[in-house]
Design a protein around this nucleic acid. Structure first.
Lengths: 203, 203
DNA sequence: CAGAGTTGGAGAGTGCTGGTTCCCATTATT
DNA sequence: AATAATGGGAACCAGCACTCTCCAACTCTG
């Protein structure tokens, strides 16, 4: 399979395939001569994956490279996996102490580990943004979020494939990145449904 | 309050304030002469809101303008509110029929309304992206998402302020846009907590 | 009332990102 | 042998969110 076949197969312009090769998002093909290389199904799959990450996944090229590297070379500590996936997506501004977040986490029974402060920062930043906009989440909303996310995390974690490390890494990373839009879309739909349930059918 | 005071108050460069004025994200001040205008607290609050939307909220200038317009001029039908907020954030590619989504929605007891197909499309797009990446959500995950989002939507809707339409609109729009990062951050933390619970303390 | 500093307004310029175009010497293909 | 395609790399481009520059018209300070 030559580059044009690869491009056609994955529905991506040849120039863009070259770009991804240059940026290291796609592994090089096997050179058969100075101006010819052979690509295979692994390239097609990878190309589709890249497109999902940078398109709907909304990752930048640089972050996508990090995520793909994490998939290719799983970090030894399996607990770090989530960290890689998480920090790859929303890199926190700067890690500061955030006692409010720790207090919340303790309330929800989520263990506070020093190494994960970068992830806490993401939540702290999000809460700061709400505050900065002059928006105060009503009491109880945060707790409901916590309970709901506990359920979500439980079922997601329960489904991590146990057969191979590579499969597990892939599942976790893609799950974090690509299921976010799904979850958000469903939140919107659930809100619409709830709104309609509240308002008696007016039309 | 002159433009430089407004800029200092909100912590935004003057040039950027001018830019937002030009782009229609910020209402003009009251002109007191050909080269002087007066701004007030409403401008400060709006400016902070704009910064939250385009910064942490991650909205583009154009989308932020739509959202702000929705806040300023609430659509008559209160059920459309969510639609405005929702489609403003993630504009669907193109509205096509999506029977799988309708099937899922019926399974979850969410009413299918023709007018809301644009929102369904967002979910359909997200699922397509998963599929395109060769990632198949394990059975049960989607249903868990649905149940979790039902709870979230219920408590969010229950807290919509009833005293004024403007306040309700503001709550809904900002809730959709700015609470998303909060929810996602908490998903990450819940996953980390669940992962650690599974793996006995190794360090 | 002069001179310094600000202001509104608008156009051009900037830095970054995610490609895309162009080019060339070298292979395939016909 | 003529035509087309390829790998590689540098230059280029469009869009975005600002940011800079400029200017005539003001306002404030001494």
């Amino acid at each position: 399979m030559r580059i044009s076949d690869l491009a056609r197969e994955a529905g991506v312009p040849v120039a863009t395939v070259k770009y991804y090769l240059r940026e290291g998002l796609l592994h090089e093909g096997e050179l058969t001569s100075a101006t010819q290389a052979r690509y295979d199904e692994s390239h097609v799959a990878r190309l589709r994956l890249v497109r999902s990450l940078v398109g709907p996944g909304g990752l930048s090229i640089a972050v996508a490279r990090d995520v793909l590297t994490a998939i290719d070379e799983p970090p030894p500590d399996s607990v770090d996996l989530l960290g890689v996936a998480a920090t790859a997506v929303r890199r926190p501004t700067e890690v500061r102490p955030h006692p409010e977040v720790h207090a919340l986490m303790e309330r929800w029974g989520w263990p506070v580990r020093e190494r994960e402060c970068a992830e806490h920062q993401v939540l702290a930043d999000a809460l700061d943004a709400l505050d900065g906009a002059g928006f105060e989440p009503p009491a109880g909303v945060l707790d409901t979020y916590a309970r709901a996310m506990d359920e979500v995390a439980a079922v997601e974690l329960a489904n991590v494939p146990r057969d191979s490390v590579a499969a597990a890494v892939r599942y976790v990373v893609l799950g974090v990145v690509l299921q976010e839009p799904v979850l958000l879309a469903m939140r919107r739909l659930a809100e619409a449904a709830a709104a309609q349930r509240q308002t008696p059918p007016s039309d």
